[in-house]
Amino acid sequence: MSHRLCSHVRDMLPRYLCGNLADKDGIREHLAECSSCRDRWNRYRWEAASSSTAYTELRTFLGEDFVPYLDSSATLAEDWREQGPPDAEGLAQFFRQSAAYLYNLVIWQASGNRPDYAAAGIPLLDVARARTVVDFGCGVGNDTLPLLDAGFDVTACDYDSPSTDFLRWRLRRRGQDGIPVVEPAQTYGMPCPDALWIIDTLDHLPDIEVALSHLLAGVRVVVCEDLAVRRGVTRKGFHRSLDPDEVARIFERHGLLPASRDPASPVMGWLR
């Protein structure tokens, strides 16, 4: 790896953090191959996150178990390689047990590297006049909390895990411990919400129709991330490659049609 290329990539880290580079894929590929730049990128994100409320909350929540500068993406990729390709239940267990994923979700958001999905997606909820929302794949609550702050009636949904333990802790600190945090299977027995909010989750699902058909049949709007954007810099195997056209066909079979969008928006939406 040339020193000049490494210097160039490191100079680009501030802009890469904010997602405003034209050649994001080129930077991503370099970070996947160059351990030195990868280490620099990990430290850069941690330091960008260190002044945030979420970082302070994570450190308080974990106490003496807190591991600063953990490269959670690399840890997740290694854990995945050691486990081997799982079946659907094995995938669920992977997320139920992963402390590295807790770090990954917090540092991604707290560093400013995660797009502001809530700001981009809430106007779609307003267009659909949605008030009740299932945040499917809620993780640590990166979107659950701003949706609650915006006045929506939110049910958080994810596997019981270190991530949802942290979310419940955050809700208690905010006096919102009555907010439901449910497992995916529990969504089958609940009234259908107005909106399905599903960010950073579709590409984890072994079968989208099996996991979501009961919700897709009744919701008025679906909000997900821009499915054309490539993911990750460590090639974690639990992100499936999605065909955006196939996802659109699944949604359309349930009466949900693509909403108009700004090509620069980090979200996509479907409306009934």
Rank of each mutant, 00 (worst) to 15 (best):
R230H: 12
W46S: 04
R114L: 13
T56M: 11
V221A: 09
I198M: 07
S98W: 14
D158T: 12
V222C: 00
D200H: 15
I199Y: 05
D207M: 11
A88M: 07
D126F: 02
M1W: 00
Y69A: 03
R43L: 02
G112P: 04
L257R: 15
H204D: 04
L145P: 02
S36I: 13
N142G: 13
P85V: 15
W197T: 03
D243Y: 08
S163H: 10
C157H: 00
G139I: 10
V267F: 07
P266T: 00
P193K: 03
D116E: 10
V106H: 03
W270P: 03
H254V: 05
F66S: 05
D243G: 07
I179N: 00
E82Q: 14
S241M: 09
L202V: 08
C138G: 10
G237D: 00
P193G: 01
W46E: 02
D245N: 11
V134E: 04
R43H: 11
D87G: 11
C138F: 10
P184E: 08
D243Q: 06
V221T: 13
A228Q: 11
H8S: 07
Q176V: 01
F251A: 09
L76P: 00
D79T: 14
T164Y: 10
K236G: 04
V9P: 04
P180G: 06
D25Q: 14
A49C: 07
E89P: 01
R170E: 05
D207I: 08
Y117E: 06
P162L: 13
H214Q: 11
L17P: 05
Y117G: 03
D143A: 14
K24Y: 02
V9K: 07
D126L: 08
R240Q: 12
P115K: 15
D126A: 13
V134C: 12
E78M: 10
D158I: 14
V134S: 04
F95R: 08
R231Q: 13
A128F: 07
R261K: 14
F61E: 05
S7K: 13
S73P: 02
S241E: 12
W41G: 05
F95H: 14
